[in-house]
Design a protein around this nucleic acid. Sequence first.
DNA 1: CGGTTAGTTGAGAAAGCTCAACAGATGTGG
DNA 2: CCACATCTGTTGAGCTTTCTCAACTAACCG
Lengths: 291, 291
Amino acid sequence: MLNSVSNHSEASRARGFASPLIQFAALEEKALGRSVPSVQPVLPTLVWHSQVQAPQVSKPLHTGAKADCSNCPTRPLCMPIQLRSTDLGKRDTLLGSTRKVERGEAIYRAGDSFRNLYVARAGSSKTVAVHRDGREQITGFQIAGEFLGMDGIGTGVYTVDAIALEDGLICVIPFKELEEQCGEVKELQHLLHRLMSREIVRESSLLMLMGNLTAEERVAAFLTNLSQRFRDRGYSSSEFNLRMTREEIGCHLGLKLETVSRMFTKLQRRGLIDMHGKQVRIVDVEGLGRV
Amino acid sequence: MLNSVSNHSEASRARGFASPLIQFAALEEKALGRSVPSVQPVLPTLVWHSQVQAPQVSKPLHTGAKADCSNCPTRPLCMPIQLRSTDLGKRDTLLGSTRKVERGEAIYRAGDSFRNLYVARAGSSKTVAVHRDGREQITGFQIAGEFLGMDGIGTGVYTVDAIALEDGLICVIPFKELEEQCGEVKELQHLLHRLMSREIVRESSLLMLMGNLTAEERVAAFLTNLSQRFRDRGYSSSEFNLRMTREEIGCHLGLKLETVSRMFTKLQRRGLIDMHGKQVRIVDVEGLGRV
DNA sequence: CGGTTAGTTGAGAAAGCTCAACAGATGTGG
DNA sequence: CCACATCTGTTGAGCTTTCTCAACTAACCG
């Protein structure tokens, strides 16, 4: 078993949670459309491994190693329950390979020709759109189980930079092969459509945030979203670590880093959160949601 | 032939352009990924029919009428050249039916269960995300040939309201059938993926706009984008009519209506544009692009 | 043709930004 | 393992941009 998987298990056990695989399966039901879907637009996918060290891959995988999906902690997220009973789902390797990335390394760059989708398997990343004059916008943060690269399908060229926020492991999914499989496996096709649609909805929610919310509301919404996703993954929703800097949060929310810092302070003074650097404790979830 | 089609042709001829069908074919090559794709994120799809009256449908189509795609002016946009030679492409009716909509009418509403994608066939629309406290964000404007409803795929429920900006005609494409066809017709599958990806990229560009650009830059970018799309459709890129109010523009760009008005005035004083109400003339395209 | 909606413009208020100083955390090389 | 350099985060003061409120005009609709 990969060490990163062990890390997950250990972290979960240490906090009194059931096995992460069971948790993930529950999440899957929720996240992939079994239960009654929420009407209200959901804020963007922003989750990081809290309490989990950056993965120490003990048996290092070489770049280009064949992916072993049967042991992947993010498998229940990538592959819905309906798929697992199919031929495809029973394979150890679904598609593609894995690749190690170091903190700060580009998974792909704007302008690179589009070949693959990527899934963060361990670690987190950001996607950055760069304006002609150099101004940057972080369009999203991704963590284990979340997809990258869908921006490249439309034009055949990626339109944003995808940068690892920490050392990690990503799955490389050749899109051509994926599309071929989609032609054969209806459930896979539908899953891809849902993933792309979710990305559209995620960005719509961010547009709402940027167009209408105040600085305090944005930061509160950011934390609330984070908290919910930690809860969904079986981690504490009230205590976690941020994986990104204040500047990156600001660049994502359309604020300056000083403003982000001030809003954290303000929320803390209001007794809603308790922050020390990147460590966050949410004191009043309700209150934070009402901001 | 539908009157709305005649309107297109007349408008084009009056301005010395070749038949819109030829123009659209050229656009298709450009828009759907034949030529070298631009690396720089493209601003959102914001085009309206200038110089074209709101469609007067002389032989009224009943709601639910079977769509006759062979005569549709937006066909070359919906269906790429590769598809037309296939069995599917040769059919008069691709999928679905048409529906008349009146100005202000909802094409679908947030919370409605997802069944169809829609394509504006004549007229334009807006998609509006509504926050719990009532604050609104227009996530996009759509015109003939542009798709609506992809936000609903992910959860099975639409997440935004889609409202007609003027009387018009829309194609209704049952998504279930579309997915089935996608399984059989590879090119159709790929087209759908590209359309969804483009929506993702469009929204990323809007995030950049909202996160980084000043009010003046936003309004200039809005007009520039509009202008380019009119040019792409064979209409004048320097003179056109806006189909939405200042308030709607502001709601889309994250500004108040007064600010939008002031920025129009400012751009006019700088000699870049010449506006009278909803009528726009772009005097200095270069300059406007450099704002 | 009168009421309503849409657009413009001004003045003052407010939110967030810039600049700056400083403190704490992190990382690196000797 | 320490010392130094760098990066990250906090806080304050003043400034800029955009918003709010208000008055007015123009365009549109029944």
